Amino acid sequence: MSAKYRDIADDLRRRIDQGEWLPGTTLPDYAHLVQEYGVGRGVIGSALEILKADGLVSVVKRRGITVRERGNRRRLKRGTLVTRDPGRGYVMPAARPDEPWQVHGRPNRETRPIPARPAELLCVEAGTETLVRRRVTSPTGEPPFQLVDTWIHPQGVADAPRVAERDTGQGGYLDRLEEAGHGPITWTEYMRVRMPTSEEARHVDMPDAMPVLELARVGTSARTNTPIEVTICVIPADRVEVATELRRARSAQWPRDPAAS
């Protein structure tokens, strides 16, 4: 097979990027591609696997080889400032206060066994019945950008029952938790790259073979000094890059300060 499949993948990528096949349309079928490139079906399959992993196409039985809808790669400028919008409530550093976001589909909430990762962050035993609020969101007008799961500690649900309702009121579940005695909540974020679960990939329309960026935000109660809620955002790797502005300490100032030596 040598590297022929990579050459074919590069050529198909070029043709997609140049608009020969638009998002939502289908490429020629396997038989046509085999004939066009003069190779075997296995070579075409390997080329398409590369494009699937890159998020360019999806291959679905009976639907064919479809060019995926792609949103713009979003640059997350990671800061530390939490702001507040009168209508939306708290706005975390990854979002701009003036940027409207939308929810795709219907948000879901349910109580179910908590998986190991959020359980570790929430300081509960894995498998504990825990309320989770799930939504798929994006900037308004863009394809689904991220899957967001918020796990709320059973004590938080007991103290603020409204966090389990569909409509949590102005300011959302965070306001309800703080009003119930857990404010001011403080947050710590954790970031890592991992592979998605099949369920996560399905929700944000991405290939299973593509990594995701996981941003986990842990909210700590001022009353108990323990985690009261954990929000985990799962973002396909082809939709995001993280930018952090570096600042100089006094010892690194220019012109150099002799007193700092």
Rank of each mutant, 00 (worst) to 15 (best):
residue 1 M to R: 12
residue 3 A to V: 14
residue 3 A to P: 09
residue 3 A to R: 15
residue 5 Y to G: 02
residue 5 Y to M: 04
residue 6 R to L: 14
residue 8 I to T: 00
residue 9 A to P: 04
residue 11 D to P: 06
residue 12 L to P: 00
residue 14 R to I: 11
residue 14 R to E: 14
residue 16 I to P: 00
residue 17 D to Q: 12
residue 18 Q to N: 14
residue 20 E to H: 11
residue 24 G to W: 06
residue 25 T to H: 14
residue 27 L to K: 01
residue 27 L to M: 09
residue 29 D to W: 07
residue 29 D to Q: 11
residue 30 Y to K: 10
residue 34 V to R: 07
residue 37 Y to M: 06
residue 41 R to S: 13
residue 42 G to V: 07
residue 43 V to F: 00
residue 44 I to S: 00
residue 45 G to A: 06
residue 47 A to V: 03
residue 51 L to S: 01
residue 57 V to T: 01
residue 60 V to F: 08
residue 62 R to K: 13
residue 66 T to R: 14
residue 69 E to M: 08
residue 69 E to N: 09
residue 73 R to N: 07
residue 74 R to Q: 08
residue 77 K to G: 11
residue 77 K to V: 15
residue 79 G to E: 07
residue 80 T to P: 01
residue 82 V to C: 11
residue 85 D to P: 08
residue 87 G to Q: 14
residue 91 V to H: 05
residue 94 A to C: 11
residue 97 P to E: 11
residue 98 D to Y: 11
residue 102 Q to I: 11
residue 104 H to D: 09
residue 106 R to D: 13
residue 106 R to N: 12
residue 108 N to K: 13
residue 108 N to R: 14
residue 113 P to Y: 09
residue 119 A to R: 02
residue 123 C to R: 15
residue 124 V to F: 00
residue 125 E to I: 09
residue 126 A to M: 08
residue 130 T to P: 01
residue 131 L to A: 08
residue 132 V to L: 07
residue 136 V to N: 03
residue 137 T to N: 11
residue 138 S to I: 04
residue 139 P to Y: 02
residue 147 L to Q: 05
residue 148 V to R: 03
residue 149 D to W: 00
residue 152 I to D: 04
residue 152 I to A: 05
residue 155 Q to F: 13
residue 156 G to E: 03
residue 156 G to C: 08
residue 158 A to G: 07
residue 163 V to R: 01
residue 163 V to E: 02
residue 165 E to L: 14
residue 176 R to M: 11
residue 183 G to I: 08
residue 184 P to M: 08
residue 188 T to K: 13
residue 189 E to A: 15
residue 189 E to K: 10
residue 201 A to D: 02
residue 201 A to G: 06
residue 205 D to R: 12
residue 208 D to C: 10
residue 209 A to N: 04
residue 210 M to T: 01
residue 210 M to C: 05
residue 212 V to L: 03
residue 212 V to H: 00
residue 215 L to P: 01
residue 216 A to K: 04
residue 216 A to V: 06
residue 218 V to M: 05
residue 220 T to N: 12
residue 222 A to P: 10
residue 229 E to R: 07
residue 236 P to E: 05
residue 241 E to W: 10
residue 248 R to K: 11
residue 249 A to K: 12
residue 259 A to V: 13
residue 259 A to N: 13
residue 261 S to I: 12
